[in-house]
Write a protein that binds this DNA or RNA. Structure first.
Lengths: 337, 337
DNA sequence: TGGTTTTTCCAAAACGTTTTGGTTAGTTAG
DNA sequence: CTAACTAACCAAAACGTTTTGGAAAAACCA
C-alpha cells in the first residue's frame, strides 16, 4: 500500500541506492538523474519510511516529555504553554514531541522513562517540575542519555538546565509588598520534594530578613500547585486570629485560588489584601484584578530547552550548560498596582 | 552501547531467534530456557529496540495529535485536559502520543499530516477543532488512514467521531436564559469555517425561535475562541444602544473574556447581566461568579477517542462509528443561579 | 595509444528485531 | 525395530531505508 523506495527504483529502472542517494543530495548522482528521481518520487507520493530511517541512522527524531498528570482535572495552563513551545521548536527542526503521561514520582513514571531510554524511543528528554533528589536526573545521567531540565535539583551532579532565579525573584516580590506597607506576608508553597518550593521559600525568607520582619511559621501553608489547594490554604490563612495582609502563592494557580478565597471572605484584592503569584501564565492577566506575578516566559523557555537538548544529541558543546535567568516582576492590581 | 538481542544470545549461547521467541512467549521454547533468557535480559538491561520492532511489525505504537497553536500565548486549558486524556489512555495501552504543532489550516499543518501519513510515523490520528469542509478528513479518509474526530464536518463522508449535541445544548442554554427573564440574548461565536460554530449558532437560533424571540443580527459577534477576543466582542455588544442582558460565548474562554468586559463596564455578572459558555473547563468553576456552562468532559472524551482509533488500527469493527452525546447544562452564578 | 582520473551508477552490508520454514534428537506407538 | 510424531532449537529472510566499497565507462593527459 504505501510506496516504497523499490517502487520508485523500479519505475526508473535504477537501483534503490541511486534513488536514495539522489533524494538525499549525494553528489555522485547525475543532475539529470536526480531530477528524474525527484519527479518520480513526487508523482508516486513516495516518502521515506520514518521507521526504516530511524533504524538505519540510529535516530528517533523525537524529543520526549512526560506530562505529570494526576487525572481528569489536569488543566494547568503552564503545561499547554510549555508543550506549545516544545512543539513549535521541535517542528521548526522537523522533529516531533513524544508525549506520555504519568503521575509524578510513581512506578508508572519510572517504567516510562526506562522504556524510552532502553528502547531508544526518543533522542532526548526534557524534564520539568524538578525534585530536590530527582531520580530521573540520576538515572538519565547515569545512562548517558541526553537530557535537559527546567530548573535544578540539589544533586551533586545535575542535568544541563535553564533556571529562573526564583529565589531572587521572591525576595524582590516580598520587597515589593513591604514597600506597599505589608508586614504580615503569608506564603502558600508546595511539597518540599520540589526544588521550586525550596528556592521560592528561601527567597520569601530572604525578603523577610532583608525587611527585618521575623519569620512566622503560622504564615506558611502548603498546597499542591493547583488552584483548589491554593483556595483551601488561603481560607486557613484568612481564618487566623491575625490574618496576613498579603499572600504569595508558589505559582500563579495557587495565587488565583487564594484570590478566590479572599473574595469569598469579603476582601477586596488589591485594597484589603494583596495577592501575588509566580509564572506569568496568561490567566494571571485576566484575573480580577490582574495578578501581580513574576514572569517566566514558559513558551520561550520550552523552545530553548529543545534547542539545548538537540545540541546535546548532536554532540555539540553547550554554550551554557546552566543558564540562570533573572525574572521580571510584573506589578498589577492584585497588589494595589 | 545499548544492549541488543545479540548480546543476550551470545551470553546464553543461544540463537537470537530463541531469545526473541522466549521473550515473546512462544510455546516452542522450553520453560527452563525461557527463564534463563528472561533472567539474562534483565541482568543485562536489555529492552528491544522500539525502532526495529516498529519496522518489522509495521507498527509505530503511537497516536498522533497536532495541536492547533498560534504562538506563545497558547494557554487554552481545553488542550491540556485533552492531551492528558489522550496520554492517559495511550499509556494504559503502552502507546505514546506524538504531538506536533501547527497553525490551523496552514501549509505547515498540511505538510505535517502528510509527513506523518506517508512515513507511517503514527498508527492513527486524533482530530479536533473540526472545520466544516475539513481537508484533513478528506485527505485521511482518502489515504485509508486510521482517524477519529472530536466533532463532525459537513462533508458527505466523515471520520468516525464523537460528537456532543451542541445544537441541542445551546437551545437549552437559551431556554435557561429565557426562563431567567432574558429577551436580549447575544452570542459571541467563532469562525464559520468551524463546525462547532455552525452547530452552536444553529442551537442559539433554535432557542430564540422556540422562545419566539426574533433573531437580531446585531446580537451576533465573532471571536476566535480565545479570552481576549471574547473580551473585545463583549465590549462591542455592551456599547450597543440597546445592549443585551445576556451573552453566550461559543466556548468558556470566550465567555470568560465577556465576563471581564462586563465587569469593566460596571456590570455585576449574574445580576445586571448573564453570561454563559460551553466546554466546562476547570476555569469556568473558578470564575467570579462561577460560569454557567455546558459540560463536555474533555478528558474522558479524549480517552474514548484513543480507544476508538486503536480499534480502527486493530481492524476491529467500531461499536458506534458516530457517537452523539447529550450535554449537561451546569447552572452557576453567572446566570443568577 | 595507453595509463590515469573522474563520473555515475550498483550490489551488498548494515541497522535490530520478528517470523518463516526447517532440522535434529528424543519419544512413542504399532 | 521402525516409522511417525513431538519438542526445542536454529539459519535465513523479512521489514525499508542508508552507507560502504566497488565496477565500468567516459574523459583527460602525456
Amino acid at each position: 500500500m504505501p510506496i516504497s523506495i523499490r517502487d520508485v527504483a523500479r519505475q526508473l529502472n535504477l537501483s534503490i541506492t541511486t534513488v536514495s542517494r539522489a533524494l538525499d543530495g549525494y553528489d555522485d548522482v547525475a543532475e539529470e538523474t536526480r531530477q528524474r528521481v525527484i519527479a518520480a518520487a513526487r508523482e508516486l507520493g513516495y516518502a521515506p519510511s520514518h521507521t526504516a530511517r530511524q533504524l538505519r541512522r540510529q535516530r528517533a527524531d523525537a524529543i520526549g516529555y512526560i506530562l505529570p498528570t494526576s487525572g481528569p482535572r489536569f488543566s494547568d495552563p503552564f503545561f499547554s504553554e510549555f508543550i506549545a513551545g516544545l512543539g513549535d521548536e521541535a517542528t521548526s527542526r522537523d522533529l516531533d514531541i513524544l508525549v506520555s503521561t504519568a503521575p509524578p514520582d510513581s512506578a508508572a513514571e519510572r517504567q516510562l522513562y526506562e522504556r524510552w531510554v532502553r528502547s531508544r524511543r526518543v533522542d532526548g528528554i526534557v524534564l520539568s517540575r524538578m525534585r530536590a533528589y530527582d531520580w530521573r536526573v540520576k538515572y538519565l545521567l547515569k545512562s548517558h542519555f541526553p537530557v535537559v531540565a527546567l530548573g535544578h535539583t540539589l544533586l551533586a551532579e545535575d542535568a544541563p538546565q535553564i533556571e529562573i532565579n526564583a529565589r531572587a525573584g521572591f525576595a524582590h516580590l516580598v520587597q515589593h509588598l513591604v514597600e506597599r506597607g505589608h508586614r504580615r506576608i503569608a506564603y502558600i508553597g508546595a511539597s518540599s520534594d520540589l526544588t521550586l518550593q525550596v528556592d521560592r521559600l528561601a527567597g520569601y525568607r530572604d525578603g523577610l530578613a532583608t525587611a527585618q520582619i521575623p519569620f512566622d511559621a503560622s504564615w506558611i501553608e502548603q498546597g499542591d500547585l493547583t488552584r483548589p489547594s491554593g483556595y483551601q490554604a488561603a481560607l486557613r490563612l484568612l481564618n487566623l486570629s491575625e490574618p496576613p495582609t498579603a499572600i504569595i502563592g508558589v505559582n500563579d494557580l495557587t495565587a488565583l485560588g487564594a484570590m478566590h478565597a479572599a473574595h469569598e471572605h469579603g476582601l477586596v484584592v488589591g485594597r484589603d489584601i494583596a495577592v501575588a503569584g509566580y509564572d506569568g501564565i496568561e490567566d494571571s492577566e485576566h484575573a480580577q484584578p490582574p495578578l501581580t506575578t513574576i514572569n517566566s516566559s514558559v513558551y520561550s523557555l520550552a523552545r530553548r530547552l529543545v534547542k539545548m537538548v538537540c545540541a546535546i544529541v548532536a554532540n555539540e558543546p553547550l554554550a551554557e550548560p546552566r543558564t540562570l535567568i533573572e525574572p521580571e516582576l510584573i506589578v498589577r492590581g492584585s497588589t494595589g498596582g
